[in-house]
Amino acid sequence: MQKFLFINPENCSGCRICETVCSLHHEKVCNPTYARIQVIKWESSGLYIPIVCQQCEDPICETVCPMGAVFKDETTGAILIDYDLCVGCKLCVTHCPFGGVMISKNGKITKCDLCDGDPLCVKNCEPKALQFIEGTAINFHKRRVAAQRFSELMQKLLTAT
């Protein structure tokens, strides 16, 4: 079943390991500036939010691409760029609502490719702010969190009566 890169910012510790492993793997150098994933931080209020391509079902980058260079890898679910077709117009960069498509060091358009189906950022994320899981698991996870809130509320009500 298709897996998705699921972000849970509440768990993010802000350590930037995801950025570093991404740049080491893709660029063979350590330089978070060119990582496909980035942790955006509001340091003084303690908010850390990892931002990366969401591998949309109906990708805007694909829609706006005048060359038809954006395609989906059916095995991994990653939205990829066909560099034989890409002319580097950057419309995808402009239109992506997540900053998921980026300009790399050599000026080429680049984005998260899910490391061919085994994302290194996920592998190295100890607090599990990043997970690579099936859609059903994501749904259940979200419901579990909601149920937890309900149960806490109900317990409060029970102890109040």
Partner: peptide, 17 residues
């Protein structure tokens, strides 16, 4: 505590927020 935070390159994250 609202969460834990880590220094650069740390998988332990021993700091309370």
């Amino acid at each position: 505590t609202i969460g834990m935070s880590g220094c650069y390159g740390c998988s332990v994250h021993c700091r309370h927020r």
